[in-house]
Nucleic acid binder design. Structure first.
Length: 370
DNA sequence: GCCACGCCTCGTC
DNA sequence: TTACGGACGAGGCGTGGC
């Protein structure tokens, strides 16, 4: 029996705890790009803001326009990740001691296995998660929404079905009916693009998704996603909880103050991105093997290029050199000019240094041998 | 024909 | 009318070795 715990409207709720006077007002937490005053997007908002149509990912200017005809005085705040992380750590520590297996997913959510604590009794499970919910609130002043189900998929959808500060328990015997009531986009992994592709197949409901020929789904979405979608429509999911989660990537993407117009302007930005991710890499005692460069142009079109090394590396020089080569690759392959580059990002992956893998020390020993 | 790998796109929060 | 971040994970697809 799995439970999914989601801290409600997390960033905005942290801001409400910091300043309780905000609770009555719409609170919109934003990522400001620094381009001009209101360039950027909404990260999270509280329910007062959501009721007026503010959603995550919405441009800040659009969010502000939602209040122009209203008497209500909204609060727009920049994200303060370090502050939110303290709440996340505190809440996760409380949850972790209440269960056997714990999987931390992102800053504001986690899965726990409560089979043993509840003796696999669904009536009992509600009392257990209610206890956790109260304990998190008493220690952090944060509310959370909790779903319980026979697997991660159902638990996650359940935690999202009623919010905030709610508990939704789905008994195994109710899973099929529960899934049939869901919207297709409530299935994790189904975003706007997959929704459109499903609609093109004539699938608009979870019921229709569950009934379509599995081979057709695999043909269109590939083996794994096809199987996943088919199972998900029927509430089937056998993915295990993954404790000891380690980051698999280290990335940094920035929006430039002004669109770049030539390669000379791109170079210092790239160097700075490389240094940033490199510092994190070294702090985590890791090394990289793959470097990915992402370019986003003024019209928001996106281009990627990546390179995987024969050997893992911990060299900043090599990273910077690859970044410059990847930038040149993208420009050449897509026949772009340096005009209109709005955002640039670097991501390191194929990281080593976790337990069971090469440590950076061992890597240095290996590299000197070569 | 299978598999591993490298590259890229799509998804979530 | 328009507006537009950042960090991360998963998996599809093409390719090349066997």
């Amino acid at each position: 029996m799995i439970s999914h715990i989601d801290l409600d409207y997390f960033y905005a709720q942290c801001e409400e705890v910091r300043n309780p006077d905000l609770r009555k007002r719409p609170v919109v937490v934003c990522v400001y790009s620094g381009r001009d005053g209101d360039s950027g997007v909404v990260s999270t908002s509280n329910y007062n803001a959501r009721r007026l149509g503010v959603t995550s990912g919405m441009p800040i200017k659009m969010a502000k326009s939602k209040f122009t005809k209203s008497e209500i005085d909204p609060v727009f705040l920049p994200v303060d990740l370090d502050y939110y992380r303290q709440f996340s750590t505190a809440a996760m520590e409380i949850i972790q001691v209440s269960c056997d297996i714990f999987e931390h997913v992102g800053i504001d959510e986690c899965y726990i296995d409560i089979s043993r604590a509840s003796d696999s009794n669904y009536m009992k499970s509600a009392a257990i998660v209610n206890y956790i919910q109260n304990k998190v609130y008493s220690k952090t002043n944060l509310t959370c929404s909790i779903g319980v189900g026979p697997n991660k998929l159902v638990a996650k959808i359940a935690s999202n079905i009623r919010k905030p500060n709610a508990i939704t328990v789905v008994n195994p015997s109710d899973v099929k009916a529960f899934m049939r009531r869901c919207k297709i986009e409530e299935i994790p992994g189904v975003g706007p693009k997959k929704k459109l592709r499903l609609e093109a197949l004539g699938i608009r409901s979870v019921k229709e998704l569950g009934e379509i020929d599995l081979f057709r789904l695999k043909e269109v979405f590939g083996y794994k996603i096809g199987s996943y979608l088919h199972n998900a429509a029927n509430g089937i999911d056998d993915s295990p909880l993954k404790p000891n989660h380690h980051n698999k990537q280290i990335g940094n993407i920035v929006t430039l103050k002004h669109d770049i117009t030539n390669s000379e302007e791109a170079s210092p930005v790239l160097m700075s991105l490389c240094t940033h991710v490199y510092n994190i890499l070294i702090r985590r005692e890791q090394a990289y093997r793959t470097v990915n460069l992402i370019l986003i142009l003024h019209n928001l079109s996106q281009f990627n290029a990546s390179r995987t090394l024969k050997l893992i590396s911990s060299s900043l020089d090599k990273l910077q050199q690859i970044a410059i080569e990847l930038l040149a690759d993208i420009i050449r392959v897509h026949s772009l000019s340096f005009n209109n580059i709005r955002r640039i990002g670097i991501t390191l992956s194929d990281l080593s240094g976790h337990s069971g893998q090469n440590t950076i020390t061992r890597y240095f020993a290996e590299e000197t041998k070569v």
